[in-house]
Simulated scan of single mutants.
Amino acid sequence: MNNNKILENTTVLYAEDEDAIQNGITETLNLFGINVICAKNGEEGVSFFKSSKKKLI
C-alpha cells in the first residue's frame, strides 16, 4: 500500500504569524499534495474556518 497519497487533496487551515515559517510549512505540505489555507494569526484562522464551505482538518 502506498501511504504517500493518503492526505492528497486534503485541505488544511494553518495559522502562523512568521512568514518564513509559514512558507516552509506550506511548501512541505504541498509536496504531499495537501492544499493549505494560510492565516496570519489565530483570529484570522477562526474567521477562515467559520466561512469555509470545505471540510478542514
Score class of each variant (00 low, 15 high):
A39V: 04
C38S: 12
M1N: 11
N35H: 13
L29T: 03
T28M: 15
N4I: 02
N41I: 04
L29H: 03
G45L: 01
N30P: 00
F32T: 00
V36D: 04
A15G: 07
E43G: 11
K54H: 04
N23W: 10
G42E: 08
M1Q: 09
T11E: 04
I34C: 01
L31A: 03
S51E: 14
S47D: 12
D19L: 15
M1G: 12
I37N: 05
A39I: 08
V36F: 10
Q22D: 09
D17Q: 08
N35D: 14
Q22T: 05
E8N: 10
V12K: 05
E18V: 14
N23H: 12
N41C: 11
N30L: 05
E27L: 13
K54C: 06
A39Q: 09
I6K: 09
S51G: 02
G33M: 00
K53V: 11
L29I: 00
T10D: 00
K53Q: 12
E8G: 05
T11R: 09
D19S: 14
E43F: 10
F48T: 05
C38A: 13
E16G: 10
C38E: 08
T10V: 11
I34G: 02
G33S: 00
E27P: 02
L7R: 01
I25F: 11
E18S: 13
S51Q: 14
M1F: 11
T28L: 15
N35R: 15
D19P: 13
K55S: 08
N3M: 13
A20M: 14
I34Q: 01
N35A: 09
Q22A: 15
N35F: 07
Y14E: 03
V46E: 11
F48W: 06
I21K: 12
N35V: 05
G24D: 15
A20G: 07
N35I: 09
F32R: 01
K54D: 14
K40L: 11
G33C: 00
I34F: 07
G42M: 09
K40H: 14
M1E: 06
Q22V: 00
N9S: 15
A15Y: 07
Y14K: 04
L7S: 03
L56D: 05
N30T: 02
I25Y: 03
V12Y: 02
N35E: 14
V36P: 08
T28W: 13
N4L: 12
V46W: 08
E27T: 04
G24Y: 10
K54L: 08
F48M: 04
T11D: 05
G24K: 12
E43D: 12
A15Q: 02
V36W: 06
I6G: 00
E8Y: 01
T11F: 01
L7K: 00
T26S: 10
E8D: 07
I34P: 06
T11I: 09
Q22L: 15
E16C: 10
I37P: 01
G42Y: 07
G42H: 06
V46A: 08
V36Y: 04
L56R: 02
N3T: 10
D19W: 04
E43W: 04
S47I: 05
N9C: 07
E18H: 13
N9W: 02
K50A: 13
E44P: 09
I21Y: 09
K53S: 12
D19H: 13
N41P: 10
